[in-house]
């Protein structure tokens, strides 16, 4: 199960996500020629506290579901990665639907800290051409999974 601080998520097998992404990694990352820009920089993901992690993963996964994956179907069909894409999207959907970040006032500073990290990611995304940003964000799913893995318990 995932334990993002107080947020628990069961019913997602992390190795299934890795398997799905590995099946399309080469195809997807080869489309991204801009090697000098990284959206999920270390300032976004390094040293995230447990308490922050639920807020941050909720924001990031919602962004991937609502923006990245949603605008990716044309490439999915073209690159014949529908099955792997579906596995990732539906498992991200399961995680988001089970995450309930606390809205308590005493968590305000922590949620704001997580939000600042998320805004760093959004800013880098918006500074790019939209098409290139979608391709890059999709190619960085392994960076996202690597970070999420820190909160996974067998």
């Amino acid at each position: 199960e995932f334990r993002f601080g107080p947020c628990r998520v069961e019913g997602v097998v992390l190795s299934e996500l890795w398997e799905a992404f590995s099946a399309m990694k080469s195809t997807v990352q080869t489309q991204d020629d801009i090697t000098s820009v990284r959206l999920l920089k270390s300032q976004v993901l390094h040293n995230v506290s447990d308490a922050e992690s639920c807020y941050l993963v909720h924001s990031l996964l919602k962004f991937y579901l609502n923006t990245v994956f949603k605008n990716y179907p044309s490439k999915v069909a073209k690159f014949k990665i529908s099955k792997s894409f579906s596995t990732l999207a539906n498992n991200f959907f399961v995680i988001v639907s089970k995450l309930h970040p606390s809205k308590d006032k005493d968590m305000l500073s922590i949620s704001e800290s997580a939000h600042r990290r998320f805004l760093l990611f959004c800013k880098a995304f918006k500074q790019m051409d939209t098409e290139a940003a979608l391709v890059k964000a999709f190619g960085e799913v392994d960076i996202l999974l690597t970070w999420m893995q820190n909160f996974y318990h067998l």
Binding site: L65, N66, F69, K70, P73, V76, S82, K83, S86, A89, N90, F92, F93
Partner: peptide
């Protein structure tokens, strides 16, 4: 087939069974 994500976010997308 389509999973819950496809049915909610891209309902026109159906994936051929493997």
């Amino acid at each position: 087939y389509q999973g819950e994500y496809e049915s909610l976010y891209m309902s026109h997308i159906w994936i051929p069974s493997s």
